[in-house]
């Protein structure tokens, strides 16, 4: 029973991590319908930026964090401007391959600079955050992740639901010509969504880095893990991404705990195929409103 509970806790924490790292992906997809294969690399770039600033340049943690956020925001902006803008209106496969190409490029650069080793952040989380429940332990990083994740979700939920800019972003995703006719700056919306997404990615990259250490291969493979998570939740809903993340996290830890560790890595994809067969738009995706 204790084993079960520990797995449950681990699964929930892992799932929450997945959910947080899927946010940036959903953001880009929601506004510009681009399937971003460079997602894992964006996570890694953010994590490494923070590594350089905090561990190598020895800046205070808060300052390093702030600079990382600004830097990745700018990076997202530049990436959209240089690479994705020329492709607006091109076929899906070309946009996908472009992000794949970007992923390979980013990965190459990062391997060149940082190598394939695991790097660690200096310890800065207070130990007091960790929780204990009889035999079950929740380390402080997970608690911190949970708090940060919830905070982020609320901020972005509010942003999309109530702020004007959030509404403009949703309107572009909904009906681009109509948004254009009302003077919504569609290109600015795309750029903004990439910038915000890169920022969120950096954020989740840092969190992942705190937990597992910073490693290029590790982080870029998490970028692929995002697909089952978002498909399960429906590609366009942020709440769905959370639930998808938690389901995948639980599935992985339970499969790893009770069946076999090797199956653990593929189980998300097997579930993904089944879900796609049964409910093509995910468990919580929007059902298309069709008018005839």
């Amino acid at each position: 029973m204790e084993f079960f509970l520990q797995l449950l806790v681990n699964g929930l924490s892992l799932g929450f991590l997945y959910a947080v790292s899927a946010l940036g992906f959903v953001m880009i997809f929601k506004s510009s319908s681009v399937l971003n294969f460079a997602h894992g690399e964006l996570l890694a770039i953010g994590a490494f930026m923070f590594l350089v600033l905090s561990a190598w340049a020895k800046l205070p943690i808060i300052l390093a964090f702030a600079i990382t956020m600004i830097g990745s925001f700018a990076l997202g902006f530049v990436v959209e401007r240089l690479f994705l803008r020329p492709l607006i209106g091109e076929a899906l496969i070309e946009v996908i391959m472009l992000t794949v190409g970007l992923a390979i490029m980013f990965k190459g650069i990062m391997l060149f600079i940082f190598g394939g080793d695991i790097h660690d952040y200096p310890k800065f989380l207070p130990e007091g955050l960790s929780m204990e429940w009889g035999a079950i332990q929740i380390p402080s990083v997970y608690v911190a992740t949970f708090v940060i994740g919830i905070l982020f979700l609320i901020i972005f939920g509010l942003f999309f639901k109530y702020s004007s800019q959030g509404i403009y972003m949703r309107s572009v995703a909904d009906n681009q010509p109509a948004a254009l006719s009302l003077g919504v700056h569609v290109k600015r919306v795309f750029a903004l969504s990439w910038a915000i997404a890169a920022l969120v990615c950096a954020m989740s990259g840092i969190v992942l880095g705190i937990i597992n250490g910073v490693n290029v291969h590790e982080l870029s493979s998490i970028g692929l893990k995002v697909f089952p998570v978002v498909i399960l939740g429906g590609l366009d809903s942020i709440g769905g991404a959370i639930i998808g993340g938690v389901i995948i996290g639980l599935l992985e830890t339970f499969t790893g705990g009770y069946i076999s560790t090797s199956l653990r890595e593929v189980i998300p994809y097997i579930v993904l195929v089944i879900i796609l067969m049964v409910r093509p738009y995910g468990l919580f995706g929007l059902v298309e409103i069709e008018r005839v």
């Binding site: 794949v100 980013f106 190598g115």
Partner: peptide, 23 residues
């Protein structure tokens, strides 16, 4: 050894350039 990852970089760059300039 440090140069080796640049292979990947050039490979990715080739894909990106082709898609943008000669789709």
């Amino acid at each position: 050894i440090t140069i080796a990852p640049l292979r990947e970089f050039i490979f990715g760059l080739a894909i990106v350039l082709f898609i943008i300039f000669e789709p």
